[in-house]
Design a binder for these strands. Structure first.
Lengths: 341, 341
DNA sequence: TTGAAAGCGCTAACAG
DNA sequence: CTGTTAGCGCTTTCAA
């Protein structure tokens, strides 16, 4: 690979002039610039980003850490973050945490090692005690979750409100025996994650509408197709009557719809189903899936803006911000109102 | 951030000794090692990967360039590549090409800039004329596609065989009027991509089974849910009778199944549908989706092995290899044999 | 077993 | 408008 020195020699200028041309700085005579450009083309020169990063102490790269990139929700999120970061001149590398605390801590450590300029982390397991780590020299924005006692930069979605929206809609469309798959009954304030918050919303919404809000109507599960399938099996085996089912993600919902069909239960006639995330697929399943939709674009915009502002030093160190994204319910076929006949 | 010099000063040794400890090189006295380790912990020191990369000329990072990370196929692929690369001590960064030639050339250029050690590129638009670029100092393995006249390192899937498998299965399960969504009739040998190859397999398989293999039975489409929906609409509007439908990806198939339902056509009773990729979702849709399954794990293993061998200089420069992954058809409900009554 | 010196390729700061 | 110098943090090379 040619270096800047090679280009300088060939163009008969100093390396500094080459650098000035490459970085489009003023005060370079047009003729000189052309000579340098020609040399660059002839040698097939390209800047070495590693050397530039070492010198500048910045990489121009933001890390996005998500649990698993092969879940549709995170695929879309990644796409949006990449596009949005590009508008501020940043690249994005994606890191997977495996939805584990170790992986999430690893993403933090790793961002430091690689000198990424900032980190947007969709943390699902980082505990409040880890929050101190989130307030380091490295600009970090926590995305998606909502519960740290310590102040950190954070973009959350209102999972409780979303869960309540879902169950209210189920009841209002004629269901009385509601249940939830993918929720969690928190053992304390320590591990408040999306599963817990959505479950709280579910219970609150059910109580509000005067339907049975027994925590036994909530089963835990992975946020996966298999989790939905197994969740339905467990509900039915426990003998819990269900005509309205709230699933903590769309993937769970799709697995659940399939399992319901396998048990001879039709959606929406026998059971109404609501998912969460509003992935594109939700419009295309049969039946199409009613889902709680977070304001993805707004959240991504807020997260990137926040991390970029920190990187640029535009905010005081202790000035932590929190943004909570809006939720909406998108009604589709899976909760069509039951004909009273 | 503490540097190696800070650690050295604190431990009362030279930077070289610190480096030796960090890299677990022998010839460091146990006592010295402990002293250095203690200093590292006290200062919270971590190596600066950028500086190391600049010095070594290697980054330990492989780039994986895919069209769009939010398609399930590529999400899974990324997951597999990350896991496999880790076994050889490499990290992976994911780059999106937008399924455009510019994006694919960009991934190449970018891998050079960032000094990535190698590139695995799922190229869908790079033309044969660009193949020369693939044989540069940068180790590159082309994944998924199959058609370059020039020799390059390549891991392909047998798209033609896969298309033929699909149509044979449709005919053998009782369908006679087959059509395809997401295929392309190539204008020449220049742009042979998956859409073209799968269409060739479709035509060959149809001819082999003695059913109508008119190219008008193939409609182009995006590899997306919307593409499948629109493809069905176009087929039906063109008045083409269809009782067997081959879709170039599972996403197309899911969109198509939905559109068929909207037109009052039931799957599999009225139309049998075969997808391609065998994404996990295929087992969970209603009806579950018959799909052509590439040997993903085998392909990923081959691709990572090839690029790592190149990085390590274990192969002669001109010794290009090609691996073609096996295909299988996974039969599910969407092609259940029609009861002759 | 440990250390000193050099330099990877680039850019900030300043000099001309 | 252009050039010189120094140094980012690390590892390679060689010497002690």
């Amino acid at each position: 690979m040619a270096t800047m020195h090679d280009v300088a020699r060939r163009a008969g200028v100093s390396v500094m002039t080459v650098s000035n041309v490459i970085n489009e700085r003023p005060h370079v005579r047009a003729a000189t610039r052309e000579r340098v450009r020609a040399a660059i083309d002839e040698l097939g020169y390209a800047v070495n980003a590693t050397a530039r990063s070492l010198r500048q102490g910045r990489t121009g790269v933001i890390c996005l850490a998500v649990p698993e990139i092969d879940r549709p929700y995170f695929g879309i999120l990644a796409q949006l973050v990449i596009e949005r970061a590009a508008t501020d001149g940043f690249e994005v590398v994606i890191e997977q945490t495996g939805a584990a605390r170790a992986g999430e801590l690893g993403a933090l450590a790793h961002s430091r090692l690689r000198s990424y300029d900032g980190l947007i982390i969709n943390a699902v397991r980082l505990a409040g005690a880890d929050a101190a780590l989130l307030r380091s020299e490295l600009p970090v924005v926590v995305l998606g979750e909502r519960a740290y006692a310590e102040p950190v930069d954070r973009v959350a979605m209102d999972n409780v409100a979303g869960g309540a929206l879902a169950v209210r809609h189920l009841v209002d469309s004629g269901r009385r025996s509601v249940a939830m798959i993918g929720g969690r009954m928190s053992s304390g304030p320590a591990d408040i994650d999306a599963a817990t918050e959505r479950a709280r919303g579910f219970l609150a919404g059910a109580a509000e509408r005067g339907v049975d809000a027994d925590p036994r109507r909530i089963v835990e599960s992975d946020f996966s197709l298999e989790g939905g399938r197994d969740g339905v099996r467990r509900l039915l085996e426990a003998g819990i009557a269900v005509d309205g089912l709230f699933c903590a993600t769309d993937l769970i919902a799709i697995g659940a719809v399939r399992a319901l069909a396998d048990h001879g239960l039709r959606v929406p006639v026998d059971v109404g189903v609501v998912g969460f995330d509003d992935v594109p697929l939700a419009s295309f399943t049969t039946p199409s899936l009613t889902s709680v939709a977070p304001d993805r674009i707004g959240m991504v915009d807020a997260a990137v803006s926040m991390v970029v502002a920190r990187i640029r030093g535009e905010r005081a160190d202790a000035d932590y911000r929190e943004v909570v994204g809006a939720m909406a319910i998108i009604e589709r076929e899976s909760t069509a109102t039951i004909d009273p006949n």
